[in-house]
Design a protein around this nucleic acid. Structure first.
Lengths: 209, 209
DNA sequence: ATCACTATCCCCCGATCTGGGTATTTCGCG
DNA sequence: CGCGAAATACCCAGATCGGGGGATAGTGAT
């Protein structure tokens, strides 16, 4: 059985180019090609594709909106974004919406075939710069601030961040309320903050908890 | 100038295999190969590599620890993890520590060469299952619970999360303190929380702000 | 024209937190 | 052995917050 592919791409030249490229191989079947995604849900039912190639910028609804729509009714079809945008927000919005891969158009010619194979094998094909962007996201967590909090202080801070009052923390840890307060005061000094909110917000954002 | 490669891998067989594979190509130069990373900083200085292949499980210090150490002194060398572990915590710890790529040993034979090229070109080579894990991470920021906060409420919540007191929020927005309090009460109801801390912690973690 | 929702404002009271102190014990380090 | 860091505990005064009321006004949908 050939792999069923559905294409959404508003640029007619590129759209036909993609089709040509894929039709060279008989393991692929283009079940449909459209210049916008306004009927995406209906078309999804009609064609029941294995893979969708989705442009982002199209007249009517955007490719990212389309992905969101698709994911409300179908978690299985593999979606590869195919676009010129390599900025942070397009990439993350698309991935959060539920895309499985993200290819820049300039990489399409040499990576499309392998990417379709990869996405069907449970992978997440991405252009190199996109992959770097994605892992860069998780690396931002670190570095900046090695606050010298003691173990006890970290423990109390994280309990505080879970929404516990001083009283609750005290009884959780089996120590006096006043002791909790003393720890909290030192935490404030070390973090250069003056309230629970600031401490918790700083702690969460800088990944101390 | 050949690409200078440094290898840390405790399994002698695999280590030699990697060398054989790379030495087939004269654009690569193995400047060193070691069975543990205990001298990693010294060796880094000595060899000044372009790419490091790093196992995770080694006697002495782990590959992840080694990456952390390397990143304290060098942001430029490209590091590819080479390991059998494909679980969430190994992968994320390694990437957070500063690795640029993550290959499973079972994919090494067919992807090593292309991965080295990719990492040098500013990409982030990953085994397919790893890539899927990574993008799965950002999709967990699930849209499942879109709390129906009004615009004003979101604004106030995010100001609160920045560490502002009710008083500060009131004067920032040019409204009365009591109005801020009313909004806050409604936010608590909608979020099912009972304090600033809980609200802010929930807001940040579910990234409503 | 009524309903639901939003944004605005006010009061009260008790609980909680903040900032300023002081003090004891334990533990590791030189 | 003395020193500092960490953990423990207490007191007080004033600010802030949480939960309970009630109130007016505008907007958009039905």
């Amino acid at each position: 059985m050939p792999v069923r592919i559905l294409i959404f791409e508003d640029n007619a030249g590129l759209r036909e180019g993609l089709c040509q490229l894929l039709m060279l191989r008989d393991e692929y079947e283009i079940t449909g090609r459209y210049e916008n995604a306004s009927q995406v849900i209906t078309l999804l039912d009609q064609h029941n594709p294995d893979v969708i190639l989705m442009d982002i910028e199209m007249p009517g609804i955007s490719g990212i909106e389309a992905v969101r729509l698709i994911r409300t009714v179908n978690r299985d079809v593999q979606i590869i974004m195919l676009t010129v945008f390599d900025d942070h927000s397009h990439v993350f919005d698309a991935l959060k919406a539920g895309a499985n891969g993200y290819l820049l158009k300039r990489n399409v010619s040499d990576r499309l075939i392998s990417s379709i194979g990869e996405v069907l094998a449970g992978g997440a094909p991405m252009s190199p710069s996109i992959a770097r962007l994605v892992i860069g996201e998780m690396q931002t967590s670190k570095a900046s601030a090695p606050y010298p909090l003691s173990d006890r202080e970290k423990q109390i801070l994280s309990s505080l961040a879970d929404g516990n009052s001083f009283k609750m923390i005290a009884s959780d840890l089996g120590i006096s309320l006043e002791t909790v307060r003393t720890h909290i005061k030192r935490i404030y000094e070390k973090l250069h903050v003056h309230s629970q909110i600031e401490a918790v917000s700083k702690a969460i954002r800088e990944k101390l908890v």
